[in-house]
């Protein structure tokens, strides 16, 4: 089975091609540049390097979010369109789960995270038996302080993974002390090969109905809903600009 994996959900651009259980090629860059510009040329180049053609594919796996709204949409749009036009299914994997997979050899709690600005993070809680990841808490958008406190209450060792961990390093050290572990830089970026391998085990979906997991409503919707309820936004629900093009 030949699989293409696409992750443009956050700053890193990740692609992988696999044939069965063999990863044929993997592409990762971690620069703040336009995914819309670079994703398709990178996909074309990876196919060429691996001596494969789009018509060989059996499955497309995509990182479905959370992350930058625009970034998630670019990857999902490419994945959906390729899958539909090639007549093959699509599988989605949480962008956080992909990151968590980097910690699969850690015996404590695994916490992947992406910064969501204004003190908020996208995160989740995972555990691994050394090979298979298990999700302990759903992916969520949460205030970093509150998340640190909840993790502290668990009294276990925690591995934090992600390029944005640096932003919250001090907070986690302060709350968790010696139980906080930071993944090294070589494990800080989501691996598209992990995306592909995780995706192979996920439910096959129809390309037409596949949508991103933004994990939050657009700002205009939050405001509109608040207005319908006749109350102001209580500030607990985080929103960002309706025009998020990061």
């Amino acid at each position: 089975m030949k699989v293409l994996g696409i992750d443009t959900s956050n700053t890193p651009l990740g692609l992988a091609l696999a044939d069965g259980n063999v990863v044929k090629g993997e592409w990762i860059t971690n620069v703040k540049k336009d995914h819309s510009l670079r994703a398709m040329p990178a996909i074309e180049s990876l196919f060429r390097q691996c001596g494969m053609a789009p018509k060989d594919l059996d499955l497309i796996v995509v990182a479905k979010g959370p992350g930058s709204y625009t970034g998630v949409r670019i990857g999902v749009t490419i994945a959906k369109t390729l899958a539909w036009s090639l007549g093959i299914p699509i599988a989605g994997v949480s962008s956080l789960e992909v990151l968590a997979a980097n910690g699969r050899c850690f015996s404590g709690l695994i916490v992947p995270l992406f910064d969501a600005r204004r003190g908020h993070i996208y995160t989740g809680l995972y555990h691994s038996d050394g090979s298979v990841l298990r999700q302990l808490e759903p992916d969520q958008l949460v205030v970093a302080d509150e998340w640190a406190r909840r993790l502290g209450e668990r009294g276990e060792d925690v591995l934090f993974i992600g390029a944005d961990v640096l932003l919250y390093h001090e907070l986690f050290q302060r709350v968790l002390g010696g139980r906080a572990h930071m993944a090294p830089p070589s494990l800080a970026l989501p691996r598209p090969s992990e995306l592909v391998m995780l995706g192979k085990e996920k439910e096959r979906r129809n390309a037409h109905t596949f949508v991103p997991d933004y994990l939050r409503l657009a700002e205009a919707e939050v405001k509109w809903l608040a207005k319908q309820k006749g109350e102001r936004n209580d500030g607990d629900r985080c929103t960002i600009s309706a025009n998020d093009h990061s």
């Binding site: 959906k80 933004y214 657009a218 025009n243």
Partner: peptide
């Protein structure tokens, strides 16, 4: 309509939902 104008983020979300259906 309920927002009184086009909201860019919502427009983008709808495009992703519709794009392959409309092309097909």
């Amino acid at each position: 309509r309920r927002f009184g104008g086009v909201v860019p983020e919502i427009a983008s979300r709808h495009h992703v939902e519709q794009i392959t259906l409309v092309i097909e």
